[in-house]
Design a protein around this nucleic acid. Structure first.
Lengths: 205, 205
DNA sequence: CTAGAATTCAAACAAACGTTTGACAAGCGA
DNA sequence: TCGCTTGTCAAACGTTTGTTTGAATTCTAG
């Protein structure tokens, strides 16, 4: 019950996050997870009940934080005056990219997220929708007041496009590789490019 | 050896494509594949050698076609004069979206593609890079002559962003759902939005 | 028609999977 | 110290995995 940093439960979560990211939910076995976590095989079922529950926990913990960060950043952007389009976009993009780096500098979580999108698992999809739905709505509303020439349908289209590019970028999929730059520098650069590009796309027409 | 439409080999490829798309490479078993294909379990290893080879074949067949379609579309866009930015973007985007729909109207292949990006499997990644690399270079070069104010590095950044949005859209991940529209109509609409957005993003600055 | 290659099939293989079990140790309030 | 909960552990559970086998069947060239 204690939230120690190196408790069995936490070590399982860390190892699971890393392995799910690189091998997928189906591709990473509990034996790999418990071995990497230096924990007994039965510990997963003891602490999480099942592999499926472990997957949900890994996602939920990170998503809760990402949602909170985005909501807070949006509020900060809205209280500034005048509110800039780039600020609202930054509130959507930067927390997601920040979540890319966990304590050990790994990009495990976002690869999991991208993979989850790709999985098309309906339970996970609706889980994401329930967690993200209202935050996406808040952002779309905020963008709507800044871009009165676009109707709601059009805004959702463009947010879809931006989210796709963001997801792709988060997982470090692209051809652009950091050269000499630190992870943080590269993340900043990615955020800047995304925001700049997205702002131009949103202002179009 | 004969390329019949309903040969054992082809039925396996079709079933594998569909199942890999919805359950992932690790999540879809050969028993599911052969059962859906109405084919004996041993047929996969007989015709493809291994599950891994089957995965590669499924990808290779589709990628060859996508590459050819894109290259041809790019040439068509370049011979038109004056060459419009939207035409080059269309040559990148439309063949990919068209590949979304196979004969039976399924979006299997693109979900596989998106999933493959997410898999981070190095063998598959380099496989994609080898197949896509020169095509991406050709497009970047074409865009470079249309956008002389952007240097090569900047162009790659923006193509990364566009490709991310495209991949996301192809797999039908987003919140936008077709209402009453046919698959083709929805695809056309998606392409139009992507091209319009991407063109604005590319012209920025 | 026939010999031989190509393909299909049911059955079995070892390995790996998620999960359960029961014994054992550690922690803790009474 | 006692009794009870909590956690850990090795071992085994029944399934499912990808792959192999060898016999049966189908196809095809001579």
């Amino acid at each position: 019950m204690n939230p120690e940093l190196f408790s069995t439960k936490q070590r399982i979560l860390d190892a699971a996050e890393a392995l799910f990211a690189s091998h997928g939910f189906a591709g990473a076995s509990l034996r790999q997870v418990t071995s990497n976590a230096q924990v007994n095989l039965a510990a997963v079922n003891y602490h999480f009940g099942s592999k499926e529950n472990l997957i949900n926990e890994v996602l939920r913990l990170r998503l809760d934080k990402l949602n909170a960060d985005r909501t807070q950043a949006l509020q900060a952007a809205l209280t500034k005056s005048p509110t800039q389009l780039e600020d609202v976009l930054g509130a959507w993009i930067r927390p997601a990219l920040a979540a890319s780096a966990n304590e050990k500098g790994s990009t495990a979580f976002v690869r999991i997220l991208a993979r989850t999108y790709a999985e098309q698992n309906e339970r996970l999809r609706s889980f994401l929708h329930d967690n993200y739905g209202h935050v996406l709505r808040d952002f779309t509303t905020a963008l709507g007041t800044l871009l009165p020439h676009l109707d709601k349908q059009e805004l959702y289209w463009r947010m879809d496009i931006i989210t796709g590019a963001l997801t792709f970028a988060m997982a470090d999929f692209g051809a652009i590789k950091r050269r000499g730059a630190s992870a943080e520098q590269h993340r900043e650069l990615t955020a800047d490019h995304l925001i700049h590009f997205a702002a131009a796309g949103l202002r179009a027409k």
